[in-house]
Amino acid sequence: MSGQTQPETALQALAEKLRTDAIAIFGEGLADRDIIEWFYAALLAAPAQPAAQQHPDGEAVDRFAVAMKAKLAKSREKGRHGWQMGSAAYLSSLLYHHMYKGDPLDVANLAMMLHQNGQAIELPQEARRDQGFNKSSEVQRLRETLEFYARGDHLLLADPDAWDTCSGEAENWLHDDEGTASVEDGSLAKAALAASTGQEVKP
């Protein structure tokens, strides 16, 4: 019916059913018929209650769920099924590798499978190896930075004699004769490296 919204159409369908049921129960008597027609008219005239406004987060989840279902349907067409029987290790490995493929729908669907199976994400062996490598590389870069300062390579002073310690200040801080700048001489980096390796860094 053109010009009608879905709530109005649903309301009219409900009114029609109530009207038919009431006539079946009370019969075709004039008094009963008048009451039924009045009820039918009043029900149709009642304004439809607007649906509760959904938060944008909920709307986004609904749209994403539609896209997830479509992606799952395509996977089923390719013969992929049985995730309910997949182990946490297997599904987690798939999730990890799909992260690098860049499609958030694949990652979301695999996360859904783990969630619905009551499983937690298990970091695959290759992920733990990569994580260890990255941690090792980061530690090495930090060590090299500390060694740079411990050797005093940051002290590019045009006139070293113009820099000295100042009475009442920490001895590892050098100040210029003009009193316009200060710089740490690398003692902090030396102490950090000595505590970590037990070895002193030579300038």
Rank of each mutant, 00 (worst) to 15 (best):
G168D: 00
E126G: 05
E171K: 06
E200Q: 07
A60L: 01
F148D: 08
R143S: 01
P104T: 00
G3P: 05
A181Y: 09
S75K: 14
S75F: 13
A191H: 07
G132N: 11
E122R: 12
I121R: 04
V107G: 00
L43C: 01
D185M: 01
T180Y: 07
G86E: 15
P104S: 03
K135D: 12
L193K: 00
T20Q: 11
V61K: 09
D130L: 11
M68Y: 04
A52C: 00
D161Q: 03
K71T: 12
K74C: 09
N109I: 06
K190S: 13
L94H: 14
W83F: 09
Y149G: 04
L14Q: 14
F64Q: 02
D130T: 04
K190N: 11
Q4E: 10
T180D: 11
R143L: 03
P104H: 02
Q119N: 05
A127R: 09
Q131M: 10
D21W: 07
T9G: 00
S93G: 11
A127Q: 03
R80I: 15
A70D: 14
A22D: 08
A189M: 03
E144G: 14
D161N: 06
A15G: 08
Y96S: 08
E144K: 15
A13V: 06
V66Y: 04
Q12M: 10
